[in-house]
Computed example of a mutant assay.
Amino acid sequence: MTFNFLSPVSDVVLAQNELLLPQTLGKKLKIHTKAHGLPDLDNVKIAIIGVLENRNDVNYIGAEVNLDAIRTVFYNLYPGNWHTNLADLGDILKGDSVEDTYFALRTTITILLEKKIIPIILGGSQDLTYPIYRAYDSIAPMVNVVNVDSNFDLGDSTQPIKNNSYLGKIILEQPYNLFNYSTIGYQTYFNSQEEIDLMEKLYFEAYRLGEVSNAINLVEPVMRDAHIVSVDLKVIKASEVSKPQKYSPNGFDGKEICTIARYAGISNKVGSFGIYEYQNAAEDHVTAMLVAQIMWYFIEGVNCRVSENVLDDTVNYQKFNVLIDDDELVFYKSNKTGRWWIEIPFLPDVNNKLKKHTLLPCTYEDYTEAMQGKIPERWYKAYKKNTY
């Protein structure tokens, strides 16, 4: 299989890249160009892909997606002390239909996942999360999706897919590969009570904006268990972005969204990271710079990954058993990183989604609360999802 659907990075970006200092990211990336074609992907760990598709945006009125400003700013940044090789594979253009674009994106992501390359996807409307999820059909039997968004994006599953309703299609369409869905940064007044109730009924996780802003470390265990991370730029407060991007006076600030991106990068499970709903406009340097910095922090996180396998390594971990009524909760703590997990038991007599004992990332606070007789909510929801 080859990358037949990718168009080269624009000549405008490449011309500006020629003027950069040799230490900048633009000089260290492997870039898909018209003159030289696709770069060699041997030893490449992270690949940037633009997707110029936004026709399923509920507010679509013909605007085109252009990512040149983001690339120009990103190329100007300096890398950290990184050991991973990066590539920019260019853009997937709009197909004759949105379904054609979906097919091109799904095919491209599947190839990258098979090559163990992490794609950073720049969009385009957030419904592009759906074909990325479908790219995992042959990769992972169960998939966890994290949506950094002010909305749940459940929508009306009986209607055609839109950027505010793609989750309904993910939940209802076979094969049923979704194990968990988490929303980080939701704002209650943007979500109906019916949607909030449905999130609870499905045992999905939802973290309010204020909750995360008050304790940003809540995001780390959620990201540690994620395969797909989808960021809607509307989750960022209006004061942090330029005019075309302004959505709400409340939202994450630049520091918070970059911290969340770094947590996603650190996670060993995260195999794709997408940033969506970018509204390009002339002289919009601030939003482009923020997106570039979100990408930078995700890459920084990937470079800080530490391989850990608790169940196979009994030397570098401590095990704690906590009794709560009739339940025995088993916690593990890594001596290497200080991270915590809680065991989800395998139940042989029920219809398990999980086929063996598995570990759910958690926090030290989950352990201390369990010691006081309180069952961690993340464990309860994962346990219930495993048995219904």
Rank of each mutant, 00 (worst) to 15 (best):
L122Q: 06
E18M: 11
S182W: 02
Y78D: 11
S192N: 11
G80M: 04
Y247I: 02
I118C: 06
I344W: 04
D100E: 14
K243G: 00
S125Q: 10
I48T: 06
S239L: 02
K243E: 13
P141T: 06
V9M: 11
D156Q: 08
Y388E: 02
T183Q: 04
N164Y: 06
E277Y: 05
Y102M: 01
Q279H: 11
I49R: 06
D313Q: 07
I139C: 07
P348L: 04
K269H: 14
E300V: 03
V73D: 13
M371N: 15
K237E: 04
D349R: 12
N386Y: 09
K234D: 12
A69P: 01
V310H: 07
L25I: 14
E328Y: 10
E308W: 07
L122W: 07
Y388S: 02
S138G: 08
E283S: 08
A282C: 05
T358D: 09
Y247L: 00
G265I: 06
L329M: 11
T107A: 13
M289H: 12
T259P: 00
E328I: 10
D137C: 01
R106P: 00
N76S: 12
T72E: 14
L89N: 08
L113T: 04
V235F: 07
T72Q: 08
E99K: 08
V98C: 13
V145F: 10
H32A: 03
G90N: 09
K28M: 09
F5P: 00
K269A: 13
N352A: 14
Q372S: 15
K255C: 03
D312P: 01
E277W: 02
P160N: 11
A15S: 15
T33K: 11
N147R: 11
D88M: 09
Q279D: 09
V146H: 02
S242G: 09
G210F: 05
V315T: 15
T337E: 13
S138D: 14
I257Y: 08
K355G: 13
M1D: 14
S97D: 12
F320V: 09
I92L: 07
F74V: 02
Q293T: 13
I196S: 05
A264L: 10
Y203N: 11
P79W: 09
K356H: 05
E308V: 03
T24Y: 09
L202P: 02
S125F: 04
Y364P: 01
Y189L: 05
V143G: 00
L25D: 03
L311D: 14
I171A: 00
V315Q: 15
N352Y: 06
I132C: 02
Y203F: 12
